[in-house]
Structure formats: structure tokens, C-alpha cells
Write a protein that binds this DNA or RNA. Structure first.
Lengths: 345, 345
DNA sequence: TAGAGCCTGGACAACGTTGTCAGAAGCGGG
DNA sequence: CCCGCTTCTGACAACGTTGTCCAGGCTCTA
């Protein structure tokens, strides 16, 4: 009575299993398995009968059972900060493409920059036995991953290095990029340059700050505290920070922004200013070329970050990689106008 | 000999199981299960011993086995068109938040607007026994999902309706939004208005085209074929289409763009034009307010689409929803300047 | 002190699949 | 006509977890 399936009544219907298919096709369980997996040694006639039964019952192999038996899940996990951030979209997509090329699915989650949530997510992924992990870390202590690494879970950190463990990491050259960006402003005559960035506990933020300081020092400029705002993340605080450094006793004539979110807010503030203030931002943003003036940025290639990380991940899984490495991708200064404005004081 | 674990030598190390933990803690298998799941009936002293063993071995529960036993995976699948598209980032994030609130993980994939790839992804997700699916369909025939629906896989379609099956769907009011946007241009004196949109086989594209036609008809304007470009997706073709309708025998004085990608390209083209051409785009874009002139758009709330869909999904899983419904979310016309320019001919 | 009842812990089966292995059937050659 | 070989098929165990059920030890009361 095939109807019992629908009548069984549990809200979550009983799905047909290979056993059901076998019964319907009048063959053995293993034969169904063979057909489903395209293994050789099945007569065309038998295969047809099995296919028919599969079709009729709407059978789909239960991958949980398969994974349990085989050990590999053909899925990888991606933990990032915020899927909605335009910087992570292309990165995520690049990871997905590589995963797809290797027949793997992508499970992903946003840590919202919260170390606990990061750990929770990563461990949940490990419990699902993902074959590998791509992590954009929020925290700075990843020793909780030691058992996983030992167990052979491939792991690559992206955008920021892992904390207190030895693991692969793929980064953009935040320090060099920021230094070049600030040096660019200095080369155009600026000396009072503001820096607005994220909390220095975030590696990239710290590196970009370091790049800013290095460029200033190289030029022999003493940085004033009032020129730096660290940890301003939400638009309101960024706005306030920008307005303050533009109106203090020694107002800045140029601003360097530490990431894309800061950039969009600062651009808004600058658009309201009576005088032209030079600007360079870290991360490219869409339509930057169409603004007046065009926005000069230090661009990093988010897709390349994701692709590089994912490829490394699968090379770990191949067994062709053993020693963790640190890969740093270059950034690119794109001049569009805002960074080439002269000081206006 | 606990060392055998490390020595075992299979590249994919043997992970400790509950059995190993039980042996080490000197308790029964089920007791470990109880501790791991926080079930009652374990002495604090026993629990401590078990926890210690878990810690020492780096044990993580194998969720594949758990799923196999329990039937639910606590994960949902999201199939969309392109994770890298800024429209889908917030949508995806919203789905994730709702999933998280329900203790579920999110698996997602991009169909790249390819129906076969959509089906492949969806079926892979079903094989993993996701509890539910949020699908932004690429194809127009979803009968392949019938067995899944029957089996109780909660399913919600977003942004575009399902094809040939009866399922929940959450949409933006593409027709109404486009009609309003075009009517807005007409109200500002335009009569020769161009439309550049995606392939009409995509539901939203067809609806927006329908809205355009409706607005034109309402105003008694006969639409010329040269004013419409359908299926131009890549920047080059969009550019060509825009340039053609701006230079023909009866050049348009305004353009309506069918989605965000078309919008950014058209804006570039218009910026190069000697005369001012009015513009309204479907979908809001970042920094639209800072361009000269500001970009008038018909905005849809991507996060709300995702949230609504996901909430409906979990209500299906609760069992509180039975009858598929079609929910249409309103759009909002945001005037910023480009849509209020008068005709310049 | 015996009996009732509770609390803790463990043995065992089951979930749906795949790997192993052995049996059955078909076929050709001696 | 029988043997041996190949080709196809199926029985069975195992993967790691959880649900069921029972046993043993304890406390409490009469």
C-alpha cells in the first residue's frame, strides 16, 4: 500500500528509501544503490526498472546516511562578517564557484563581528562535518579549532589572520595599501590628514592604521590624536568623527577612510562641506567614478581573496598542501579625483 | 591506546565518537549522549567526568548521524541568482537571521540564472534533507519539486513565482512599481520614454515591462519598438541599447531601467551625454543620492523580502500554514532629481 | 527491616546508506 | 555434458547517534 506513505500522518512525511525503491522494482537494496551511484554491473533492463521505481516514488538519496557511511560531506563552510556587506558578496561568490568546481556545496553564516558567534558557527559547521572551512575571523583566538585541524578539516583564514594557531591565511596588503593611499595624499601637498577606521582589534583595521602612521612618519609629519578616529563603525559615529576633525583647531585637509562603510559615510559628509576636502578610501565602491569628484580608492580584489582561499582549501584536501602559509595579495590605488585635490586652507 | 587515533594515518583522521568518550570517562554510551544534549538524569560528578573526556579528546558530535536518527537537519537552503549581486546580499542576510533565530543553518548557492543549475542545486539541498527551501527561481517549471513538497519540505519562492506548482511566493510589486516610475516621468512631461530590462522570461522583467506599457497606455502614448530593449544584461549590450535609443530618429528624453545592474550602466551612459536625460531605475543603489543629479528609483526592500519569506518558511514548518499564498510587498518611489528633469529636446 | 518508588546508567535497536563478499546465472570450450 | 569463467545480484555489517526499555542502587516510609 503505497498510500500509507501519505497517510502515515507524521507531519514530516516519510520519504521513500532505497529499500522502498528496491521492493517496488523487485530487486535488492544494493542494486538500487548501484544505479543511484552509477556504479557498473547492472543490466540495462534492471536499471530501467529501478529508474522507473525511483521516478514513481520520487526517491532522493539521503545524503546524511551517505555522509555517515563515507566520511566526506562534499560541503565547505564559509564564516564571514556580514553577507550583506558589498565587500563579501563577491568574495562569497568566488568561494562558491571554486566549491562548485569541486562538487561541493557551500554553507555560510555571518558572525556579525562577534567572536562568540564566530565560534558557535564554526563549531556548528564542524558538527555537520564540513570538509573544509573558510573563515573571516571575528575573534583573535582560534585554539578551539585545534581538534578540527588535527582531525583533518581543511581550514583557510581570509582577510585577517588566525589567532594563536598555525593556519593558512590569505590577506590583502592592508598596511601597504593604506601607506600608499596616505602617501598619495601627502604627495598632493596634504599634511593634516585624518584617519577614520574600525576598531584596532580587527587586524585589517590595525594594519591600515599602521600604514597611515608609516606614511605620515616617512613624510616627517607628527600625527595629532584629533586626526584619528578608531572604532567608529556606525554611520552616526563616523559622521561625528569626520565633522570633528574638519572643524577642530587644526582641521584636516584630507581624510583617509579605513573601509568601504566608512567611505560612504565620509563621502556624504564631505559633500556637505563648503570647501573641498581630499579623500582616499580603502576598498572600491560602486559608482565611485561617477561622483563629483570621482572617489580615489585603494582597491582590493575581494573575489581574488575568496578564490585564492578556496583553491588553497581544496589543495589541502587533495593532500598536496601541508605547511600553512601566509599569502598577501596586493592592492591597487585607483585615482579618480578626490585624492588628487590640493589642500584648501 | 588512544594514540592509535593519531597514528591511524588515514589522511582524514578518525574523529573521536561518543563511544570513545564513554570509554575514557568510564560510563555508558547513552550517558555521554545525555550530557552532550543536556538531558536530565546525570549526576554532576558523572557529567564532570564526561565533560572532561569530551574536552580531552576534542569530541564534536557528528550531526550526520544525529540527522539520520532524528529526521530534521535544522538547516535551510537558499538558492538565488548571484550572491555577488548587491540586491541579494541583504536578502540573504535577512534569511540567515531568521534561520538563526530558529536555530537553523543556511546553505546557499547561486543558480547564475540557469534553470538546470537551479534544479541541480535544489535537489542537492533536498538530498541533504534541508528542512526548508527559499528559492529565487531561475526556471519556470518546478514540478520536479513535487515529491519534496509531498514529503513536507517547506518551500517558499521569492522575487519570482514558482512555475507549474502551487507554492508560497513572496514578491515585490514589480508591475505597480514600474508603472508608477514611468508615470512619474510622464508627469514630468516626458512622452518618449525608453525601457531597458532583462529577458521577459524572467517574471520580474516581464512584470516591469508590463508596468511600463500600462503607464504609457494610460497616458495615451504609443510605444515605439526602438524604445524598448529586452534581455540586455551585460554592460556592453545595455550601453549599446541606451545609446541607440538616445540617438535614433525619435530619441527618448527619459529612460526607465528594469533593474540595478541596468541602472548603473545607464547612469554611466547618461553621464556622458551632452544633454540631460531623465532617468528612473528599478531597485535602489548605494550612493544614489550623491550623484549629480541624484538618482530617482523605485526601491524594493530586499531584506523585507527575505525576512518575510523565511518567516513564512518557518511557519510552514510549525505546521501553522497550510495553504500556499502569494504575498506582494509594495515598492517605494524615491525622488532624488534624475526622474524630475524636464524633457530636453 | 522490608517494600515501594525514584534516580541513574547502560544494552540494544534503528535511522538509510555503502563496502564486502559470496552466491546465482549465463556462457563458451573441452 | 560438465567445468570454469564472467557477469550480475543480494545478504549483511558498519557508520555514530538517539529512543526505548530495563536493571541496579539508593532513599524514604511504614
Amino acid at each position: 500500500m503505497p498510500e500509507t506513505h501519505r497517510l502515515a500522518g507524521t507531519r514530516y512525511g516519510n520519504r521513500p528509501t532505497m529499500k522502498d525503491v528496491a521492493a517496488r522494482a523487485g530487486v535488492g537494496l544494493k542494486t538500487v544503490s548501484r544505479v543511484v551511484n552509477g556504479e557498473p554491473g547492472v543490466t540495462p533492463e534492471t536499471e530501467r526498472r529501478v529508474q522507473e521505481a525511483i521516478e514513481a516514488l520520487g526517491f532522493r538519496r539521503n545524503d546524511s546516511a551517505r555522509v555517515l557511511r563515507k566520511g566526506r560531506t562534499a560541503s565547505i563552510g564559509l564564516v564571514l562578517e556580514d553577507l550583506a556587506d558589498p565587500f563579501y558578496g563577491p568574495l562569497s561568490r568566488a568561494v562558491e564557484e571554486v566549491a562548485r568546481a569541486h562538487g561541493a556545496l557551500l554553507i555560510n553564516g555571518s558572525s556579525a563581528e562577534d567572536p562568540d558567534r564566530e565560534q558557535e558557527l564554526v563549531l556548528a559547521l564542524c558538527a555537520r562535518r564540513v570538509d573544509g572551512l573558510v573563515v573571516i575571523p571575528a575573534g583573535d583566538d582560534h585554539r578551539y579549532l585545534e581538534p578540527e585541524l588535527k582531525a583533518g578539516v581543511a581550514t583557510v583564514f581570509v582577510d585577517r589572520p588566525a589567532g594563536k594557531i598555525d593556519a593558512d591565511v590569505v590577506l590583502s596588503d592592508s598596511y601597504g595599501g593604506a601607506r600608499d593611499g596616505v602617501a598619495h595624499l601627502i604627495a598632493h601637498g596634504h599634511r593634516r590628514i585624518g584617519f577614520i577606521g574600525d576598531m584596532p582589534r580587527i587586524h585589517t583595521a590595525a594594519e591600515r592604521l599602521r600604514g597611515y602612521r608609516a606614511a605620515m612618519e616617512d613624510a616627517g609629519i607628527a600625527v595629532e590624536d584629533a586626526w584619528m578616529s578608531l572604532g567608529a563603525t556606525d554611520p552616526l559615529r563616523v559622521r561625528r568623527a569626520a565633522e570633528e576633525m574638519l572643524s577642530g583647531p587644526s582641521p584636516v585637509t584630507a581624510i583617509f577612510a579605513g573601509n568601504n562603510r566608512v567611505t560612504v559615510t565620509v563621502i556624504r559628509v564631505l559633500a556637505e562641506q563648503p570647501r573641498r576636502v581630499a579623500f582616499v578610501g580603502f576598498d572600491d565602491i560602486e559608482l565611485a567614478d561617477l561622483l563629483q569628484p570621482g572617489v580615489t580608492v585603494v582597491a582590493q580584489d575581494a573575489a581574488a581573496l575568496g578564490r585564492t582561499a578556496a583553491e588553497r582549501l581544496f589543495r589541502q584536501l587533495d593532500g598536496s598542501l601541508v605547511v600553512p602559509e601566509r599569502i598577501e595579495l596586493p592592492t591597487r590605488l585607483i585615482t579618480r579625483g578626490s585624492g588628487e585635490l590640493p589642500p584648501a586652507d
